[in-house]
Simulated assay, not measured.
Amino acid sequence: MKRPTRRMIIAGAVLAAGAIVTAAALGFGGSVPQVEASSTGLPPATAKITKGTLTQTQSVAGTLSYGPVTPLTGKADGTITWLPEPGAVIKPGDPLYKIDNDPVQLFTGKLPPYRTLSEGDSGPDVKQLEKNLKALGYKGIQVDKYFGSSTTEAVHEWQDDHGLPENGEVAPGQYAVAAGPIRVTEVKTTVGATLAPGAEVLGYTGTERLVEIDLPVDKQQYVDVGNPATVVLPDGSKVKGTVSKIGAVASTDEEGDTTIGVTVTIKDQKALGTLEAAPVTVQLITGKATDVLTVPVTALVALSGGGYGVQVVDGGQVSYVTVKTGMFAGGMVEISGSGLTAGTVVGVAS
């Protein structure tokens, strides 16, 4: 009868996939304990079965930045009298730039200004204006899509606070909207220049750095919105991230590679240091097995009747136990078999 033999093919295949172990050996210090056998006839080395979590990952290339640049165009004509510096962070209620010394303010919203608003008007743009005025501290205003007397009063106060003509009307050239605070990336004009409606004033991004990935479409199954990801910075340090957006439309470049855009957000911005833009590696989780028994892949033995087993070493005796394998990750393999528990000693290849 043939003796079981160890095969290393499996180990090579799973290691090539780039899988890693994020936690292992609950109760055993997080690493695989190796103990040299001392009796003749025993395996050359042993390891204890551990219980923990195996995590498979797929590494892809990404780019760290503040995200895509959005152009900001003017809605009124006049002379530019003040501009922010590149890198400046502008919050809702702060001026984006000044034209004829009147500030053009940043409001929060999605609907760009397209008409002059005054008492009697109604619509989503009125509600957007009212929400911003209320958020800026103007009291007594009713947020209801209708430009009533309370809105007029709040607009008068807002105009008085910012040196604007107190006419109770809000012109489209007096504000611009964005999803939240912005970071100025570039200025497209100069102080003293004449601005015409539709002319680009500056470019901006969000205020938090993120990672954008052009993910090959054949790897799309690895990502879902909300999945955790690990961002590896150029210095080798790692930062936790979360998949926040997956594009709906794939694109093909000049070389014929088809990709889909994926965005990874990073909560701990301080962990990124002073980096503003850099190529990074992103480790996407492709699978996870929790609370499972694991052994080094080198503990697997190919049984003569087919399948795999492990050599259990107990009191100087060796017995073979058939196992069912599960996930492979980072040189470890999930196993289950009769009588096997965390702490059981098994043979491994030297």
Results as ranks from 00 to 15, higher is better:
4 P>A: 11
9 I>L: 08
9 I>W: 02
10 I>V: 11
14 V>W: 04
16 A>K: 10
17 A>P: 00
19 A>P: 00
24 A>N: 11
27 G>C: 08
29 G>E: 00
30 G>K: 07
35 V>P: 01
38 S>D: 13
41 G>C: 09
44 P>H: 13
50 T>F: 08
55 T>M: 01
56 Q>L: 02
57 T>Y: 01
65 S>C: 06
70 T>Q: 12
71 P>L: 07
73 T>I: 14
75 K>Q: 12
78 G>C: 06
80 I>R: 03
81 T>S: 15
83 L>P: 01
94 D>L: 07
96 L>V: 14
98 K>R: 12
103 P>D: 05
106 L>N: 09
108 T>Q: 03
109 G>L: 08
109 G>N: 01
111 L>N: 03
116 T>G: 09
117 L>E: 02
119 E>F: 14
123 G>K: 05
124 P>K: 14
133 L>K: 02
133 L>C: 07
138 Y>A: 02
139 K>T: 15
144 D>M: 03
147 F>G: 03
148 G>M: 04
155 V>H: 10
156 H>K: 15
156 H>Y: 15
158 W>M: 04
160 D>S: 15
162 H>R: 04
162 H>L: 12
164 L>W: 12
165 P>E: 03
166 E>L: 11
170 V>S: 05
170 V>N: 07
171 A>Q: 13
175 Y>F: 14
187 V>E: 01
196 A>D: 02
198 G>M: 10
201 V>Y: 05
203 G>D: 00
209 R>Q: 02
210 L>C: 06
211 V>N: 05
212 E>R: 13
214 D>T: 13
221 Q>D: 12
221 Q>F: 15
222 Y>G: 03
224 D>S: 15
224 D>L: 14
225 V>A: 13
225 V>Y: 06
229 A>S: 07
232 V>D: 06
232 V>Y: 11
235 D>T: 13
235 D>S: 07
237 S>L: 03
237 S>V: 10
238 K>W: 01
240 K>R: 12
240 K>H: 05
247 G>W: 12
248 A>E: 05
250 A>F: 09
251 S>L: 04
265 T>S: 11
267 K>F: 08
267 K>C: 05
268 D>K: 05
272 L>W: 09
276 E>Y: 08
277 A>R: 12
278 A>M: 08
279 P>G: 12
280 V>I: 11
282 V>L: 07
287 G>D: 00
287 G>K: 01
288 K>D: 00
292 V>D: 00
296 P>S: 10
297 V>R: 05
297 V>Y: 06
299 A>Q: 08
301 V>L: 08
302 A>K: 08
311 Q>I: 05
315 G>F: 13
316 G>M: 05
316 G>V: 13
322 T>G: 04
324 K>W: 08
328 F>E: 03
329 A>W: 00
330 G>L: 07
337 G>F: 07
337 G>Y: 08
338 S>C: 01
339 G>M: 11
346 V>G: 04
346 V>I: 06
346 V>P: 00
